[in-house]
Design a protein around this nucleic acid. Structure first.
Length: 713
RNA sequence: GGCGAGGUAGCUCAGCUGGUUAGAGCAUCGGAUUCAUAACCCGAAGGUCGGCAGUUCAAGUCUGCUCCUCGCUACCA
């Protein structure tokens, strides 16, 4: 075992404050972190668990515009709800902060200034392309044009895909904005870049060598993919009015890019926590003896393993010891999706289960249980309502809850409601085995949690309850109790056996409380209550002990820890899920139709004269051959018979049509369009297609088959 | 197309550096039992380890090819 670090700083990905979060997020970044933190705290280790709302970025002002409100109103709406949702589900942050706070702005600005003044950022002052129609500066990738090196006409502003040469947008001939299709104008601007490319050697060594043994395979693989793909300098600032202002005199209208300020939110949250608790935040981010662990979903790997570590290193902070990223969680056979409304929001679960007559905190633990059991630790996993019901009913209720209940009930019936004595002399092999098992499980769970194997750790805990059931079954105290003497009471030998059995079962219950506490905290507290012990018993060092409950102490009457979930509740949820998705689908169709109408009535393009139109030579053609273009998912290479000749035309329709289906079809072709090379094939013309509301493409062709080459006007 | 992660019993997943009859939990079926939320306990059945070829005395485990899923990325309208 490695030595224990002096302190821990644990983070969960900052949820983006543009809407409610679903159980996929919960299972990916919050529940595992919460389990880990609760375990560390039970170990009495020095640990701070920080999180908060991520409130910057373009999506929030865009959504505000859509909802006819302000960005501030959006974040003020979602921040408190998200915080409450986490609390209701037992996610216990030491602080849930927000990136809109002044402290965060200060912290992020200080961070930027520190890097900038050390010369760690590259400054590029330039005449940058500006799209007047979209009223925005254009990132390199949003500009296309002709490559000065090879003449490829569709080169990006940062790199030519054809010849591989790195470019700057200025070098492009005939630049075009991909936002509006217009020619952008030059406007002076200046931006700061984080030169990730300069840190490639460090990243390679640190991740792929030093952490080859202790980081998850999916994480290492992702990182290797990124590093091998070549790291690029990344813009730290952007022209936007929502976010952390760039703290320099000549940077009006510029803010820090959200990817830069968001992870700094972990630091500002730590600072706020320190202020609130009279602590010093610095060691948590500066002392090498602090273990920093980031819990994130797989979409966040690159930020937490590549970009943020580079920032931390430059700034003189510690690096994460591990980033145990989870994969994604599907729901009832499909990806969770906010836009398609295929999801289970925390809020909905809380409303339907936790805040119900027959719900309460036990239902929060039930969800925590299932989400941990199916956590996507190594691959995408699947939430099904039936699976949730099964896990609850046959494991939590039948195995775990039942063991504790029957122990309590038997103790009340056979031991007068008191913790019975342990008769050492009467201990048998069965008894000793169980006692040994309790200690063994403690060690197993520890080892698994330290390795972030939450699923397996939880299994070991439930398995201990299973062991308890087996033990009780073999000892069958209810049968032994029938060996009565003349007074109707069990004979001394029988009572000793009963006492030992229940003494051990009750101590086992107490141990289950300790071991289950990181996973199901509400349940652990209820166990303490029933056993009339203080919550301090839950400290991890007590696990494995057979002296948690004092002999002769009278205990409370048993209460059921978990209730069964009925079939009707499950079918209600499944129906609700489908209905919600259906509703959105219908709405979307309506919106699409509306938008369709809108585009028809939308302002038409500037007027042209007949001669302009006459410049376009449209002909009817017939597809005589079609094949997929190698190394391109969307391109088809078509041979089109135009009567006077047969041409090769490359068209991006491979996702819509199969090559064999379209051979023989008539199409309309722009025949005098300048040739253009795509994926190395010269395309001589363009096929006309109409796109319907759902995005499906349709060929434009004469109603009846006519001679190829016929003119269209 | 490139890169990454996966494809193992009905379901959710273990299987490290190749080595006896491929494991667990749940579900299913059978039995036993009644202290317990018809719960528990015992037992059984259930897998061509995505497919094909190869290396090896021996492959789920190594190599090549191939199919499928997910993610990143590229190509396009």
């Amino acid at each position: 075992m490695t030595t224990i670090p002096k302190r821990y700083l644990v983070t969960s990905a900052l949820p983006y404050a543009n809407g409610l979060k679903h159980i996929g997020h919960l299972a990916g970044a919050y529940i595992p972190a919460d389990i880990y933190v609760r375990y560390l705290k039970a170990q009495k280790r020095d640990v701070v668990y920080v999180c908060g709302s991520d409130e910057h970025g373009t999506a929030i002002p865009i959504q505000a515009t859509k909802e006819g409100t302000t960005a501030q109103a959006i974040i003020d709406k979602y921040h408190p709800i998200m915080e409450q949702n986490f609390r209701d589900l037992g996610i216990e942050f030491d602080i849930y902060h927000r990136t809109s706070s002044p402290l965060h702005h200060e912290t992020a600005q200080e961070f930027f200034t520190a890097l900038n003044s050390k010369g760690d950022l590259e400054i590029k002052e330039s005449e940058q392309y500006f799209d007047e129609e979209a009223n925005a500066f254009l990132a390199d990738r949003y500009i296309k044009g002709t490559c000065p090196n090879c003449g490829f006409e569709s080169a990006y502003g940062d790199q030519c895909e054809k010849c591989g040469k790195s470019l700057s947008p200025d070098e492009l001939i005939n630049p075009v904005s991909t936002l509006s299709g217009k020619t952008p104008v030059k406007k002076k601007t200046k931006h700061w870049y984080l030169p990730l490319d300069k840190h490639e050697a460090f990243l390679r060594e640190w991740i792929l060598t030093e952490h080859a043994g202790d980081w998850r395979a999916n994480v290492l693989g992702q990182c290797k993919s990124w590093i091998d793909g070549g790291l690029q300098p990344r813009a730290v600032t952007r022209d936007l009015d929502w976010g952390v202002k760039v703290p320099l005199p000549d940077a009006d209208g510029k803010v820090l890019y959200v990817w830069f300020d968001a992870p700094i939110g972990y630091i500002s949250a730590t600072k706020q926590w320190a202020l609130d608790n009279g602590k010093d935040w610095k060691p948590y981010w500066e002392d090498q003896d602090t273990k920093l662990v980031h819990f994130v979903g797989k979409d966040n790997i690159v930020f937490h393993c590549i970009i943020f570590p580079v920032m931390l290193k430059l700034h003189g902070n510690i690096l994460p010891a591990n980033v145990p990223a989870n994969e994604f969680m599907n729901l009832e056979g499909e990806k969770m999706s906010t836009s398609r409304n295929w999801k289970l929001e925390m809020q909905d679960y809380i409303d339907d289960f936790v805040n119900k007559e027959n719900g309460g905190t036990q239902m929060a633990d039930a969800l925590r249980y299932y989400l941990t059991q199916i956590a996507p630790e190594t691959k995408d996993s699947e939430f099904t309502w039936k699976g949730f019901q099964d896990a609850n009913n046959s494991e939590l209720v039948s195995i775990f809850g039942n063991f504790i209940n029957r122990s309590m009930v038997l103790m009340h019936k056979l031991c007068k409601g008191k913790v019975p004595k342990l008769h050492e002399e009467a201990l048998g092999e069965l008894d000793r085995n169980v006692i040994g098992e309790i200690r063994a499980v403690k060690e197993k769970v520890e080892l698994l949690l330290e390795q972030f194997k939450f699923r397996e750790a939880l299994f070991e805990v439930i398995n201990l309850a299973r062991t308890g059931n087996q033990y009780m079954q073999k000892k069958e105290p209810w049968i032994v109790a029938k060996q009565t003497g003349e007074d109707g009471q069990p004979v001394a030998e029988a009572q000793a056996s009963i006492d030992n059995t229940l003494h051990i079962c009750l101590q086992l219950c107490a141990n289950l409380g300790i071991l289950v506490n990181p996973f199901l905290p509400f349940t652990a507290k209820k166990i303490c209550h029933m056993l009339k012990v203080v919550d301090k018993m839950l400290e991890w060092e007590n696990a494995g002990s057979l002296k948690l409950l004092s002999v002769g102490y009278s205990l409370r009457p048993p209460e059921l820890l978990f209730r069964k979930i009925e079939d009707a509740e499950i079918s209600y949820q499944v129906d609700k899920l489908h209905a919600a998705a259906e509703q959105v689908k219908n709405q979307q169709t309506e919106i699409n139709m509306e938008e369709n109408t809108k585009t028809e009535t939308a302002p038409v393009k500037p007027e042209i004269v007949f001669d302009d139109f006459a410049k376009i030579d449209l002909r009817v053609g017939k597809i005589v051959a079609a094949e997929k273009v190698e190394k391109a998912d969307k391109l088809l290479k078509l041979s089109v018979d135009l009567g006077f000749e047969t041409r090769t035309i490359v068209s991006g329709i491979a996702m819509h049509f199969k090559p064999e289906e379209i051979v023989g079809r008539q199409v309309t072709v722009v025949v005098n369009l300048a040739p253009r090379k795509m994926r190395g094939i010269e395309s001589n013309g363009m096929i006309l297609l109409a796109e319907d509301a759902s995005g499906k493409l349709h060929f434009i062709h004469p109603e009846e088959t006519i001679n190829p080459g016929a003119g269209v006007s």
